[in-house]
Simulated scan of single mutants.
Amino acid sequence: MTGEGPQDITGSVSVVIPVKDDAEGLRRCLRALALQTRAADEIVVVDNGSDDDSARVAREGGARVVACAQPGIPAAAATGYDAAKGELILRLDADCVPAASWIQTMSTVAHRRPDVDVFAGGARFIDGPRPLRRPLAAAYLGSYGLVLTPTLGHLPLFGSNLAMRRSAWRRVSDAVHRGDPELHDDLDLAFHLGEHHRIRFVPEAGMGISMRPFASASAFRRRIVRGIRTVVSHWPADFAPIRVARSVLRRARRHRGPGEQRT
């Protein structure tokens, strides 16, 4: 493939969507994916034990349905990544509405940046009181980045809008915490991927998300508790200063000339 235009992609693309009892949200999400300027090579919907018509909606929308009986988004997301066949794996949630250029943008950036294996996107709210959508999204995602970047020692990932090369996933697939439904899967994934892979923020990868995190004080509090649980589950080995020190040592080893001797 030649040229540097928007047609440049990084091979095949899989889109992974974990879902549990969100048929209506999934239907809207799949409609948005059907209107993409660059179609996915496959859409993998992971049915995490839904009691509604989510699986049927997924099949009607052209997705491949994979069942995950183990409860929790960490298990469901990992099951989807395992099943994905594309060279680039994109992830969003069932209640998301991607911009029409989302797949095109992520695949083009991945093609142009072969030195980067993981890509993080932002989001905007598409429901809730209209005057609050922009400021709440800015506050929510801004706080997310401000807190987690120093915690991780690098950019965090946002589960509603991310992409990674399948080779990167394979490197961490045995290490991620699949068995704890009370962890944030995207934060856990960031801990593992960020250790050895570069993460780049892609602001132009547009994504609409639901204001569900603000549905109630208890729902928001639960997200905070899960975040703390996820971070603590990686301590002490992944305490931020230790991670940064390891990263500095790895870079020093890579830049050491072949003729240099250790002292």
Rank of each mutant, 00 (worst) to 15 (best):
M106P: 11
T108R: 15
P114T: 11
V116R: 12
F119C: 02
G121K: 07
G121E: 03
A123C: 12
R124W: 00
F125Q: 04
P129T: 11
L136Q: 08
A137D: 12
A138M: 10
A139K: 01
L141T: 03
L141N: 02
G142T: 11
T149V: 02
P150Y: 01
L152Y: 03
L155N: 04
P156R: 07
P156Q: 05
P156F: 09
L157R: 03
S160H: 00
S160K: 03
N161H: 05
L162D: 00
A163S: 11
A163K: 09
M164S: 02
R165E: 13
R166T: 04
S167D: 15
S167L: 02
R170I: 13
D174H: 01
A175Y: 07
G179V: 15
D180S: 14
D180Y: 08
E182F: 15
L183G: 06
H184P: 03
H184A: 12
D185V: 12
L189G: 04
A190P: 08
H192E: 15
H196F: 05
H197V: 04
R198Q: 11
R198T: 07
I199D: 10
F201M: 10
A205Y: 09
G206R: 15
G206N: 08
I209M: 07
I209R: 03
M211P: 02
R212H: 12
F214D: 03
A215N: 05
R221L: 14
R226E: 09
R226I: 15
H234P: 11
W235H: 05
P236N: 06
A240Q: 05
P241L: 09
P241G: 00
